[in-house]
């Protein structure tokens, strides 16, 4: 075992044991779980946003598809949310393909705007297709006796561990993609798509694989979110600032295109936001102001994300590097 994999294992073990420091139904474990869930979602986003530099502002679409698919299957047909999670991931893959075909050739802002519109369309559909989605009133998960099959647990520990496993799986897939030939192709496309095409990279296929993988994982996060919160409405899962921008922001603040970036970003931002709400609730809007200022500061101090601190310390990033290089 190399020194690095030893470190990673130690971190995972520490993370798995972390809940025992907290009250099982308490607030802290809930915040930590939420942080890891958003880390997982940001990691999914990172697959297209980080490796291919396709900045999507519509990942809430897949998140919402995941939440709606599993919850509707559970409510209407009694199918366990675990199977619903797979169904949601499958639908998200189809949605990603539909979204990708027309938007694949778009770059930069145009791609971002197209994805943004896609999530917004789904929000409107969920709002108005009342017979199926329950409309704007939203969906509540029935209060049942906690059981594994119903994906409901009395102790937040279980949610935490499920989320931790999800985060680990997505992170390993991200790592695997980034060191595989697919990762090199994605980076080649990011640097110069025409040059990559000339060198024999099938940019359409490569981007499609990245986009569908990312969408499937994002949908899984949506299912877990629904189970963890017991309630959601179109406004909460297809939300632009609440989901789409948040996952992008977490990855960017943490270090876009790196494995640890989204995790660091989420562990920093989510508790900070929660803390700001708790500490500054006395004056309306102050919490957001403080949170916003800290965000601006974070970006000003290190525009390339937290991960840039450690790569700068060690060596200059190279082009073949998985590390923090953005903004080309």
């Amino acid at each position: 075992m190399s020194k690095k994999s030893l470190f990673i294992s130690a971190v995972i073990v520490a993370a798995a044991l972390a809940p025992f420091g907290f009250e099982p139904k308490g607030h802290s474990i809930r915040v930590l779980s939420t942080a890891l869930l958003f880390a997982a979602a940001a990691q999914s986003w990172n697959i297209v946003g980080g490796l291919a530099n396709q900045i999507s502002l519509g990942h809430a679409a897949f998140f919402g598809i995941g939440a709606y698919t599993s919850t509707l299957l559970y409510l209407k047909l009694g199918i366990t949310p675990w199977a619903g999670m797979l169904a949601g991931a499958f639908l998200a893959v189809i949605a990603a393909i539909i979204l990708c075909i027309p938007t694949m050739k778009l770059k930069g802002h145009y791609f971002a705007l197209a994805t943004l519109a896609f999530a917004e369309v789904l929000r409107v559909v969920a709002n108005s297709w009342e017979t199926v989605t329950g409309g704007s009133v939203g969906l509540s998960l029935p209060y049942v006796n906690p059981s594994f099959i119903d994906f409901q647990f009395a102790s937040t520990y279980w949610y935490y561990w499920i989320i931790l496993v999800t985060l680990c799986v997505i992170s390993f897939v991200f790592h695997y993609i980034s060191v595989s030939s697919l990762g090199y192709k994605l980076r080649a496309i990011r640097e110069n798509e025409d040059a990559a095409e000339v060198s024999g990279v099938n940019s359409f296929a490569v981007k499609m694989i990245a986009a569908t993988t990312s969408a499937a994982f994002m949908a899984a996060c949506g299912t877990i979110f629904a189970q963890f919160n017991y309630f959601f409405d179109p406004e909460s899962v297809f939300n632009l600032p609440g989901i789409s921008i948040r996952v992008a922001m977490i990855a960017i603040i943490g270090g876009i295109g790196t494995v640890a970036g989204p995790i660091l970003g989420a562990i920093f931002l989510i508790p900070l936001e929660e803390y700001a709400t708790a500490a500054f609730s006395s004056v309306a809007g102050l919490a957001q102001l403080v949170f916003g200022c800290i965000l601006i500061l974070a970006v000003l101090i290190q525009p390339r994300g937290f991960m840039a601190f450690c790569s700068r310390k060690k060596k200059k990033p190279q082009n073949s590097d998985v590390g923090a290089e953005v903004g080309q």
Binding site: K4, V11, A18, L264, P271, S311
Partner: peptide, 18 residues
């Protein structure tokens, strides 16, 4: 690349304390 495990650990403990 560096994966920043040390930073990750530090962060985790920070959260713990907080």
């Amino acid at each position: 690349a560096s994966y920043g495990v040390r930073q990750l650990l530090a962060c985790f403990f920070g959260i713990f304390v907080f």
